[in-house]
């Protein structure tokens, strides 16, 4: 039996309320890998992510976790998920990411605050700790979310659209920071993104999913990101160019009546 995996989906059907979105899928995520999850809007990316996280049960099959089970997930949700009526400070927000290691009914101890401070330093925002989360800029919020996900000392980092609505400078800064933390802490990363070039640049493996087209493919970037499959999934004329050791994706004119 292969025991080197961190997460494994074997003959799993994902979906909601006993309704499968796709035929059964197989996926094996190893320790230290950086996976991207891409696909069109409504293609099933979030369903796959939530199934992996154990937030929704698979319609068929079982998600297996490796020898580290129970896995500690560091989850970076989308910035828009939070209600700004809450006057939560940056430190309080990051502390919530630590709650995976603090049982219900127990308060935050001194050693927890030490880890929280370290996380703020890792994402280079120690001076923002007392600022209200709602008053931060998009980039600062993203760094806070990243610190929140690291506070639980996770085995795997799950990022949901970490660069959504960011300018190119903020996007590059946050992705480079994620890459740096991944290397330093030898983390496994799973990132949902709409930005194919970001995924191609930073991830080493990718899942491409589109439930409407009954399409699921996983593997290395080079295996999955071909002009033909990208054109099929996104309904555009997509070309893939090799630039040194990375690939670059160019979207052309609309190829068919598919959503994007």
């Amino acid at each position: 039996m292969d025991s080197s995996f961190l997460i494994k989906l074997e003959d799993v059907v994902i979906g909601y309320d006993k309704r499968g979105l796709l035929d059964s899928i197989d996926l094996s995520i190893q320790n230290g890998q950086f996976w991207g999850i891409v696909g069109p809007n409504g293609g099933g990316k979030t369903t796959l992510l939530k199934t992996i996280l154990g937030l929704i049960p698979p319609v068929k099959g079982k998600v297996q976790y490796g020898k580290n089970h129970p896995l500690i997930f560091g989850y970076v949700p989308q910035r828009e998920n939070f209600d700004h009526i809450f006057p939560i400070s940056v430190a309080e927000f990051v502390a919530m990411g630590r709650y995976i290691r603090i049982p219900v009914g127990r308060g935050i101890k001194k050693e927890d605050w030490k880890v929280i401070t370290e996380c703020l330093e890792k994402v280079e925002i120690p001076d923002l700790r007392n600022r209200p989360f709602r008053s931060l800029s998009g980039g600062e919020k993203q760094r806070t979310l990243l610190a929140h996900s690291l506070a639980g000392e996770p085995d795997i980092l799950i990022l949901d659209e970490p660069t959504a609505s960011m300018d190119i400078k903020g996007e590059t800064a946050i992705m480079e920071l994620i890459g740096k933390i991944k290397e330093r802490d030898n983390l496994t990363v799973l990132m949902v993104s709409h930005f194919l070039n970001i995924v191609a640049k930073f991830a080493d493996h990718v899942v491409m999913i589109d439930k409407d087209d009954e399409f699921f493919s996983s593997g290395t970037i080079e295996e999955v990101f071909s002009g033909e499959t990208l054109s099929r999934v996104f309904g555009l004329n997509v070309t893939v160019e090799q630039v040194t050791d990375k690939i670059r994706i160019h979207a052309g004119a609309r190829g068919s009546d598919k959503k994007t």
Partner: peptide, 27 residues
């Protein structure tokens, strides 16, 4: 007093609380 942090957590971020296996419904 006992559940202060937990009540705030499930009120502010129920999705992460569920991920962390907090008893969101009971709280």
């Amino acid at each position: 007093w006992i559940f202060f942090k937990d009540f705030i957590f499930v009120s502010f971020d129920p999705e992460t609380a569920r991920l962390f296996k907090y008893p969101v419904r009971i709280l």
